[in-house]
């Protein structure tokens, strides 16, 4: 990745942080493993999947109601995924089967009338 592209990405990420993406959680992919096996978020929160490996990843979930695919994620790429509703999403890498993450999405606290 060129310095220019990295800098551009940094600006995008910083502006995302400053515009109030308060609930973002970062899950790092390194040594073909997630930085943790389980993460708890609230409905509507984003998780930024951050590929800090030297290899490509391809995250996806087939959990009912949480189906998504990050597609090919190159080394250095950060990809946000929003988890809209409460439930449990099992996230895997289609390339590296040992990578397993459970996302527990709780109801948004105070979010209901």
């Amino acid at each position: 990745m060129s310095i220019r592209r990295v800098a551009a990405l940094a600006v995008v990420l910083l502006s995302a942080a400053s515009r109030g993406a308060a609930e973002d959680q970062v899950i790092v992919q390194q040594d073909k493993a997630f930085s943790q096996g389980q993460v708890v978020v609230q409905a509507g929160d984003r998780i930024v999947f951050s590929n800090r490996d030297a290899v490509t990843h391809n995250l996806f979930s087939r959990s009912p109601g949480f189906e998504f695919e990050v597609k090919v994620q190159l080394p250095g790429q950060d990809t946000p995924v929003t988890f809209e509703r409460a439930g449990v999403a099992e996230v895997r890498c289609a390339i590296h089967p040992e990578m397993k993450l459970r996302v527990v999405v709780e109801e948004k606290q105070g979010g209901k009338p």
Binding site: I3, V6, L9, A10, L13, A17, A22, D24, V48, S50
Partner: peptide, 24 residues
């Protein structure tokens, strides 16, 4: 507010890591 700060710090940290990584 605390989580916003932490989130921002994490993102900033990631950016720094990216820049350092690009230079190496």
């Amino acid at each position: 507010m605390q989580s916003r700060t932490r989130s921002g710090a994490l993102v900033l940290g990631a950016c720094v890591a990216l820049l350092v990584g690009a230079a190496a």
